[in-house]
Amino acid sequence: MSAVGDRVVTGGAPTQRPPRAPLMSDAERARMRRRRAFGRRLRRVLRWFAVAAMCVWVFAPFYFLLLVAFQTKADSLRTPPVWFPKPDFSNFTKILDHAFSSAPAANPSDLIVPGIRNSAIVAISVALLNVVLGASAGYAFARLRFRGSRAIPLALLGSQMVPAFALLVPYYIVLRNLGLTNTRLGVVIAELSITLPFTIWLLRSYFSNVPVDLERAARIDGCGRLQTFLRVALPLARPGLIAVGLFAFMVSWNDFLFQVILNSNVDAIMIQPAIAGLYNVREQSFGIMAAGSLLAALPTMVFALVTQRYLVRGLMSGAGKV
């Protein structure tokens, strides 16, 4: 206890400290401990409630959607709602009924399956094009120096500030002049122009983070420029590529505005306008709408679940010095 005294080098004998009076009695200390334990438990309970509240906030509407989708129409209109009904698939069978017949669509619900198919074609194309074009452009902006190699990415970012709504009419006019309204290709082009700037921006920063030495090593090891890009830079940007692919897919899958304006052709209808078309006040077809919405939400949910580990995991660690 008298370490301070022992360490004195000059100036007489080591001094002894008087023993310190205890700050509190045993009883006081026990009370403090109890109070602290109570505080800890209280915090834990509060935290649990906060998490539970957030879960309810997020999942309650979704559960209601499920309820409506898996109930008969009569049940779904009951007040108070039946919280745990016997599942009923009639809404889904009605949607899927028409899917495998070649007869022209008679009901709005017949358009859901073609809508899903068209949306899938558009969204997957947009996602793939985003990855291919975004990766090459992003890599060029990250690694090459040319006139505009700094200004253009900023302009791309700036273009994101323009609300999509403002572009709607110009897009319509341009695509109509090109004869691309009412086609899936037209929608692909429109969605691409919305998503690609962000994709390029994101991948540019991904490629900037690939250590330059790795690419130099690849050059030394015998790669040309293209091989360096394909064999070294691209694999290291994989989490980024997956992220932008998913982003582009979701944006173009979930988009409503462009798809409803640029396309009035039933053959090229997309899923979101198709769902909107289900709304019919007189029929009160909420069950069909809910079922259609569920089907529309399914792919993005599945994609997000499957790829989340790529989104989170970074492959960069270990590339540089330790």
Partner: peptide, 11 residues
């Protein structure tokens, strides 16, 4: 070339 950062391919 042996680089200062070693530049091993992390993947």
């Amino acid at each position: 070339v042996v680089f200062q950062s070693y530049a091993l391919y992390p993947n």
